[in-house]
Design a protein around this nucleic acid. Structure first.
Lengths: 145, 145
DNA sequence: AACGCTATGTCAGAATACTGACATGAGTCA
DNA sequence: TGACTCATGTCAGTATTCTGACATAGCGTT
């Protein structure tokens, strides 16, 4: 392998992508035995934190298009993990909610994902984690400004 | 919009994904006028830093499969940005190199990407950037251990 | 009221990346 | 030398996501 101290001049942008990629891979790995993928999980997690979210809001929260989220929601509805009203209570927005079954599946997935996150942070002290939090938020804010 | 202080309990994992997503979007935006995408750019940048990289190595470095990188390399070769020997000098590995044209295209792209990176880091002090570097590397290391 | 503007849900088609599989070459070890 | 393992390049097919487009609903302004 041609690995001759090449990671010395890595940019922060590359490192960010690398970390994100490693995180996603680790999450997919632990979610696969549960029959879920990352987008799957993100959707359920968002619904647990904010019940009644619309398709478009879920899409933005899970970093996919609303078309993609729509097919996922249809599958989740078919499996009985979420429910959506047949008709929109107001406007066109169909508020989605977790079913008890969905909540149970999410619990297992959350535990698995949490273990990954713990592993990711295992080499960092508490203040370092707090620093990471602020640094990432600053990056996000600057990129969107 | 239902934005009621919801980003307070965001996990570091989510923040990492969010930052990575924002970075990618910003990069795609500045690369599009140059007729390139992120994978495109990553490939050329890798070749500039390490001439002679193989298709598989480029794929790993750009976080895609080697099949995907292969079609990209064929396109880049067709456009005259890179060159690959017709036959493998040793084994099956086809070492790829930038052409002068590819190097020129990369220069413009590098400048654009660098401006994005500068913007991303604009809210951080120098020590904070150093901290970010070490934190991300720790995360990557822990996730792969 | 009427007009723009924005956002939503949805349909269809296109683009893109991935999984699976194969033959081949290099390196290792008995 | 021969068997074994691993990595590479490549082919074909599948899956997934995205882009484009449409009708419609809420909101604000005129």
């Amino acid at each position: 392998m041609s690995q001759d101290g090449v990671d010395l001049d890595k940019s922060l942008a590359y490192l960010l992508k690398e970390a994100s990629s490693a995180l996603r891979a680790a999450m997919e790995e632990v979610l696969r035995p549960l029959g879920m993928n990352v987008t799957h999980y993100a959707c359920l997690e968002l619904l647990a934190q904010r019940p009644g979210l619309s398709n478009s809001e879920l899409a933005r929260g899970a970093f996919v298009t609303r078309q993609t989220m729509n097919v996922l929601l249809q599958a989740l509805e078919r499996e009985g993990d979420v429910t959506r009203p047949a008709e929109a209570p107001v406007g066109k927005v169909l508020p989605t909610r977790l079913t008890p079954r969905g909540r149970r599946r999410l619990e297992k997935a959350s535990a698995a994902v949490r273990s990954v996150e713990v592993r990711m942070l295992s080499g960092l002290t508490e203040p370092e984690q707090a620093a990471a939090f602020q640094i990432l938020q600053s990056m996000i804010h600057s990129l969107r400004g």
